[in-house]
Design a protein around this nucleic acid. Sequence first.
DNA 1: AAAAACGTAGCA
DNA 2: TGCTACGTTTTT
Length: 468
Amino acid sequence: MNDSNRQSLPTSYSSGPPPPLNHTFGGSTAVDTWMTTAPSAGQPLPSYGTLQNHNEFDGLRQGYHSGIPSPGSNGPQNFIHHSFIQQPYLNNKYGSAPDYNQSHFSSNLYSSPIYANNYVSKVDISSKPNINNSDGGTDTHMEDVCGNDGNTAEGLTARLLDKNSDNSSAQPGSPSSQDGSCSNGVGYRPWEQPGAEGQQLAQDQANAQSLTHPTRPSSAQSDKQQQRTTPDTARRTGRSPSAQQFGESQHQIERISNQTTEKYQTLTPVPPIPPISAPGYNPNIYGQPPPVLYPNTLGASPYMQSFSGGFSTPDGKQLKMRIAEPDSSTPDIRIAAIENSFQVPSVSSTTSRQAIGGIPQPSATPPHPQTAQQVVAVHHAPQTVNEQWEASNQVSVPQNISQQTPAEGEKVTKKKRKRCGECPGCLKKDNCGECGPCKSIRSHQICKMRKCDQLKTKKEKSREVCLN
DNA sequence: AAAAACGTAGCA
DNA sequence: TGCTACGTTTTT
Ligand SMILES: [Zn+2]
Ligand SMILES: [Zn+2]
């Protein structure tokens, strides 16, 4: 499993930051990667953890599930963290889930409805009841927030966020956190933590250096090719996997002066320098001050940098987490920011919004599932969503093309099938958090557990079945 | 064969 | 414009 985790890391990482420290204390369950990562406080690098976390961000997703425990329990601390944590997974629900719903939120806040709710509910319980709700935000989210299982947010962003949060949770105190993340949760705030301060200082210094030092070990360079081609090797070279990592961590600490610092710097949120404005970055997430982007950051892997605003992928792409801007200072503000930060919910392609609990939006397409397999009873429409959808697709896409040689037609792109909305997978609201897609952002895939059964089959087959 | 990574369709 | 997640390709 470990391997898998490793892999999950973006290859890019390989060169750059070490893979997540899987070493894991216990075994890192899926979640763990990061969790584990965060070594206990004792660990040398809290920050390190952080860094990775950030890095991981790209690579890993966590959270979902959420486990976040009770809202009430949370202290103030929670607010931030939870939000993170939860968010990601919160989405799971399609109903409200990004896929299905979306609506207002997106436009309003970055925060996804879900997230927002969560946040709100948790964070601010007192102050804001549910912003979203009023709007129509999905209620469901609220539920999710921490407490339930349900919470998962789907969004990558969410996931990403979660991870962070999780990491935090991972800390010393509570390793177990996958689910529990919530509980302890509180987000991982390296900076806040005791060690953090020192780190920051270090960072500052480091930053300075980093600026000077342009390079990092060869991490950044990795292109897609490299990444893929050199998964382990690169990583190893860059850093060793779990075991090594563990050791490394210590070593790193020792090293710290140079590289380590660099790393931290990148990771750490606190920026000495005024950052480049990251468009979206939100400080809130960490609850920290602003992560500003450092212009350079030494070797900061692309990811790292982007981190503040978005995550840049190795390729250079950016994943953006949207974080709102932040002010960073006041709590209230933070909160708000937080909310914003998670945006989320975009609609998923598939979606059937209807559903699930969601919020029925008028405009939304009706769900009708009808999959051959399950057969749910209710069919409103004559066709299933998919069918309709397909129909439309087909129309748009000439079959010919698809069949024809691709040479030119490469575009052929097929259209995406939509989720049935009724199968077990579609009905699940939570992300398992353990599967590859949950862990890896790069997967661009929905949690396996949530994957629509129909979509699991190849189109051709599925069609045949349907036709038959 | 399964998983990971990638490109991008589809949607607000 | 950004997000989710499908479909494909590549890697393991
Ligand atoms: Zn999963
Ligand atoms: Zn389904």
